[in-house]
Design a protein around this nucleic acid. Structure first.
Lengths: 190, 190
DNA sequence: TCAAGATCGTTGCGCGTGCAACTAGCCTGC
DNA sequence: GCAGGCTAGTTGCACGCGCAACGATCTTGA
């Protein structure tokens, strides 16, 4: 039996007895997971009621709406969200069902496909994003001092690049060739 | 059609044209969710292989191991993790199945129950936490400058208190009465 | 030209989760 | 003491998700 199990934060048994390190990474990670779950649960009901989709699908829509031409390759979309390819396929299925996005085949690479916002999708998103922003303003309120959010985002971005290198790769070359692609189905139901 | 849909970050159409606010909360939230998902996917396989549980269950175990007496009321445990009561019930079921924790009835409140680390659980956790820490050190590396982690944790904690007020309530009174409770089953299989 | 390997997206499967409904036990006021 | 309301935890149900396997397509090298 060890005199003190190295389970406590400041065990100091794993190498680096940093001076100002009064908190450990385990706690940090736990906090991130906890905040993410809380955010998800907070956001979900409102978006669900307004748009009929969950927060994961909303994330995909946001990335889509912010992309040039309001469209993105499915793999790129997967890399830029918290979704794996398989999860994304289902998400696009749901969004297409709701006529918010549409699949677009790409003749350049007949394996690949784009997800494109429909007019209806753009219109809905404009409405929902206002609500979403308002909700986040309420939630964050004046919780962050000026500059804090920048710093946190800065750190989070670096962290994201670590746990999801694909996203970094993408943001570098996201504005590549916007090649011409044909619609797989011409229905817009505007 | 509006001249410019208010979907872009700096639309400035929703009230507050803050000076230094070059990034918006929508992005921040998206980043948090993305990082959380990435962390989860990064951590999961290792812990799964080592302990046979997912990262959610690991979070519960961590909270448990750090609690006085290595035990916690189920509701408190739920509030302190990214789990709802129903999710926690299943989690404890799994952990009890693996003989890592044990349910303990509380005579003070016969509705309630504690989750208690078993000796085997403590032993396993000591081993796994070393691996976990090592993994996080690899992952974070020297990604954060001194003081940044403190700052981020500080912000995250405030955010957590917003999206999950129960956690805040708990950490204030977590060290309440450690009343005597009886084991529901005496098996330890040490 | 053609075969071998890599990449993109989809699907079968199992699992973990949240929500809502439920039971059991506590607590207040009459 | 008892009725009503509240809280702790559990369960049915449905769903979203990741993983692994798969078919289709592109790419590379012989």
């Amino acid at each position: 039996m060890q005199p003190r199990p190295s389970l406590e934060p400041n065990a100091g048994a794993d190498g680096a007895p940093s001076p100002s390190e009064s908190l450990d990474r385990v706690t940090t990670v736990g906090l991130i997971l906890e905040v993410a779950a809380g955010l998800r649960r907070t956001i979900n009901p409102i978006i669900e009621a307004e748009l009929g989709v969950g927060s994961g699908d909303l994330e995909a829509l946001i990335r889509l709406v912010r992309s040039p031409g309001e469209r993105l390759r499915l793999s790129d979309l997967a890399a830029q969200t918290a979704l794996t390819p398989s999860g994304l396929t289902r998400a696009v299925d749901r969004l297409a069902e709701l006529r918010l996005v549409r699949r677009q085949g790409c003749p350049d690479d007949r394996r690949g496909a784009f997800a494109v916002m429909t007019p209806r999708g753009k219109q809905q998103m404009e409405r929902v994003m206002r609500i979403h922003r308002h909700q986040l303003d309420d939630l964050f309120g004046n919780l962050l001092e000026p500059g804090e959010e920048e710093m946190v985002v800065n750190v989070l971005r670096r962290l994201r690049d670590r746990v999801n290198p694909d996203a970094a790769r993408l943001s570098d070359s996201a504005e590549g060739g916007v090649s011409e692609c044909e619609d797989q189905r011409g229905e817009d139901d505007a």
